[in-house]
């Protein structure tokens, strides 16, 4: 983004500005690819033991707070006391080798698309390295090149309850403020900051909590998440929140002008729209 001061005059509609730095664009698309591999291979790893627990230990005889299972040719999701029939998607779904496949997450959502824990682990644990190192690198670079301070850090005035309430109201009424100078509104800032500085680090750390080597070197990870099985649960929940973020993000891009926004994340160039009255 090129402008940053508090009281920028709106740029005339139609102005083309350089909105996203090369580093932002490159890492955006690489992380899209890596996150997709991580998600799909992660769901396959989950399929090996589709139960989640709280605490240090948890296996088949212990109470699970979430469970996906099959009974004959019907699939179920159990969350605490509530059970939901999910035949066709969770528990039982159409697989690559037949119409009735007893597996937690369906073939179309997993990598590989048939049950293969070792291959899924190799995809996941190789990609995790690139994703973690890239996240750290991008984080450091964002501090150095001012991306964090200029574009992502909310200003104090934006964090005032009245401003936040107004922005939330506008978003809920589908009156999204058009950026008149290329800068993000406060909800965007909080969402992008929350994902890159909160959710993704939480995913990396909770992932490490599942590694017997990592927790021998950094036993505080076990305390941070409340035990290895809690870490596994947090990893799964955080992955779900990331999927939720992506869904919302895509909806917002479509509502705000998909061509202009897609182009700005590819070439960096963004066309200013007329401000909303």
């Amino acid at each position: 983004m090129t402008t940053s001061s508090d009281h920028t005059d709106p740029l005339p509609a139609g102005t083309i500005i350089y909105r996203h730095a090369l580093s932002t664009r490159v890492w955006h698309w690489i992380s899209v690819a890596l996150a997709l591999i991580l998600l799909m291979s992660g769901l396959m790893i989950f399929n090996a033991h589709p139960r989640l627990y709280w605490g240090s230990y948890g296996a088949n005889a212990d109470p699970a707070w979430l469970e996906i299972y099959a009974q004959g040719n019907r699939g179920f999701l159990r969350l605490g006391e509530r059970t939901l029939e999910t035949t066709g998607v969770l528990g039982v779904s159409k697989g690559p080798f037949g119409p009735v496949n007893q597996i937690a997450f369906p073939s179309w959502a997993t990598l590989p698309n048939y049950y293969d824990l070792s291959a899924a682990r190799r995809w996941h644990l190789s990609t995790a390295w690139f994703f973690a190192l890239g996240t750290i690198g991008f984080g450091i670079w964002s501090i150095l090149n001012g991306h964090l301070r200029r574009d992502l850090a909310p200003r104090w005035s934006e964090l005032k309850p009245r401003h936040l309430a107004k922005e939330c109201g506008n978003h809920l009424r589908m009156r999204h403020p058009h950026s008149t100078d290329g800068s993000y509104n406060v909800l965007q800032k909080l969402a992008y900051l929350g994902v890159t500085a909160g959710l993704i680090p939480a995913l990396i750390l909770s992932g490490l909590t599942m590694s017997p080597w990592a927790v021998s070197v950094a036993p505080w990870l076990l305390d941070l998440f409340g035990g290895r099985q809690s870490g596994r649960s947090v990893h799964f929940i955080a992955a779900g929140l990331l999927v939720g973020f992506v869904a919302l993000h895509l909806v917002m891009v479509v509502l705000a002008g998909p061509i202009n926004h897609l182009r700005s994340m590819i070439t960096g160039r963004f066309r200013i729209k007329a401000p909303r009255r």
Partner: peptide, 10 residues
């Protein structure tokens, strides 16, 4: 703690 590759621990 015994951690199985499948995901469970005992």
């Amino acid at each position: 703690r015994h951690d199985c590759v499948e995901g469970w621990s005992a």
